[in-house]
Nucleic acid binder design. Structure first.
Length: 423
RNA sequence: GGUGAGAUGGGUGAGUGGCUGAAACCAACAGUUUGCUAAACUGUCGUACGGGUAACUGUACCGGGGGUUCGAAUCCCCCUUUCACCGCCA
């Protein structure tokens, strides 16, 4: 969520920037300012009352010792009176604080100045393109048919065991998954990321910390009995490592990477877009997460984007990077670059990575801070990105590398798969 | 799952209901001394939200939430969690 300081110091600027996300924040911002000033006034009165109360309480002890019972009784009565009045003030404070958080949670992050205007995915700007488009014949098969032909992935079996969107990988299909995970983790480690193996279920506090709760509750699987959520991405447990933490500036930037299975309910989307591996309820992903200072976070963002580029290049996939427009960006992001790879038989671009800087928006909720040179605590910036999500990479690898002899494995991956062709 | 003992600042750890936002030690930081290092000495050393240009100052917080009391780190209740032993178990 945005900080009160951001809102009170640069009110007009905040409203203007929210408009880029097609969010009309004028009323809410005004409301925040009003409630906040009320909160301050209430606190001033309440603090003064409490100070007096504390003083009187101290004198009661002394009076009792001196045997001045009457005076002590009088003071006691007065205190009882004041406490009644404070109850209302305390309730007001609590209400104001809760209201502020509730409203702040409904206001999205401010887009960075460099975010392009636009409403939909079509308005995203192609930032960079690379790789070679494969030249497939007219009889090229989509990945779900290749998966069947070579017995790599069994979608129907997943339906039997669990339901749609939970595929079963078999043989070289399963080994390809394992190879990609290791390939991504090894690359991340070589790029300086610390490997983390986090829990796949998290509590509600963590859900709030990274902003899945309260609004996106329906997107996570929930274990009712224990009130725990299956993670939709490793970002959730890994970023929550730094919840309620004050870091030393020397530790920044923190660079973590984690593989996890990801679970997404994604209710209500069916059809061609979700065919095969295009959209799943359970999938594998290696995530990179950074915690950084505000001064350095955009440099970190560039490094992360460049790093992801090396991955798609090593996999020899045709790729491009999109700078997302204001309307297509996520609620919590200040700037997002999407990586898409071209899936040649489907003839469509598939999103395989999303690299974002959340600036202090997420850190504010997490209370993730660092101590600056003046020993003052300041909110960190948080960033994360997929590096990479497996299913669509697999889809593109299968489709783009199909030959009459079989499916060729890119050179960089062969040491991990242990085979160079799927036939 | 059962029983018992715990949870205090970055760490260790003290704390008869008022003199405790919290001893002491360690770590850290700044300085003095010193040819360098070390040692010694001096000082600083939790967070949040208010007030104040500032020095400073008010309030809240001793795992979390309630309660008792004029007053709670301290007493009571609930929850979480750690450790030990028992039970179960890959």
């Amino acid at each position: 969520m945005l900080t009160l300081k951001q809102i009170t110091d640069n009110t007009d600027d905040v409203i203007r920037r929210l408009a880029k996300k097609h969010f009309d924040g004028k009323k809410l911002i005004e409301q925040v300012i009003e409630i906040n000033s009320k909160r301050k006034n209430t606190q001033s009165v309440l603090d003064a009352n409490l100070a007096e109360l504390n003083n009187i309480s101290k004198t009661i002890g002394a009076l009792m010792k001196d045997g001045k019972k009457d005076e002590a009784e009088a003071a006691r009565a007065k205190v009882a009176d004041m406490k009644e009045g404070n109850k209302q003030l305390e309730a007001d404070m609590k209400e104001a604080e809760e209201m502020l958080i509730t409203i702040l949670c409904t206001i999205p992050n401010l887009p960075h100045e460099s975010v392009p205007e636009g409403k939909h995915a079509e308005d995203n700007v192609v930032e960079k393109t690379g790789g070679k488009m494969p030249d497939l014949g007219a009889d090229a098969l989509p990945h779900w048919e290749l998966a069947k032909k070579y017995d790599l992935i069994d979608f129907e079996l997943g339906v039997k065991i669990t339901g749609a969107g939970f595929p079963v990988y078999k043989g070289k299909g399963a080994r390809l998954q394992r190879a990609l995970i290791n390939f991504f983790l090894d690359n991340a480690r070589e790029a300086g990321y610390l490997e983390i193996q986090p829990p796949y279920v998290v509590n509600t506090a963590s859900g709030y910390g990274t902003g899945q709760l309260p609004d996106k509750e329906g997107q996570m699987y929930h274990a009712n009995l224990d009130d725990l959520y299956l993670i939709p991405t490793a970002e959730v447990p890994v970023t929550n490592i730094y919840r309620d933490v004050i870091l030393d500036k020397k530790e920044l930037p923190i660079k973590n990477t984690a593989y996890s299975a990801c679970f997404r309910r994604e209710a209500g989307s069916y059809g061609k877009d979700v065919r095969g591996l295009n959209r799943l309820h359970q999938f594998d992903k290696v995530e990179i997460v950074r915690i950084d200072t505000p001064e350095h976070s955009y440099e970190s963002l560039t490094e992360m984007v460049d790093y992801v580029q090396t991955l798609v290049e090593k996999l020899e996939l045709p790729w491009h990077i999109l700078r997302l427009c204001g309307g297509d960006m996520s609620f919590t992001s200040a700037i997002t670059f999407d990586f898409e790879v071209f899936s040649a038989a489907q003839k469509r671009w598939l999103e395989v990575s999303s690299v974002s800087n959340f600036e202090s928006y997420q850190a504010n909720r997490l209370k993730c801070r660092y101590r600056n040179e003046d020993k003052k605590t300041e909110l960190c910036h948080t960033l994360n990105g997929s590096a990479l999500a497996l299913p669509r990479i697999v889809a593109a690898l299968l489709e783009n590398n199909q030959t009459p002899e079989g499916i060729r494995i890119p050179k960089a991956l062969i040491p991990y798969t242990g085979f160079d062709i799927i036939d």
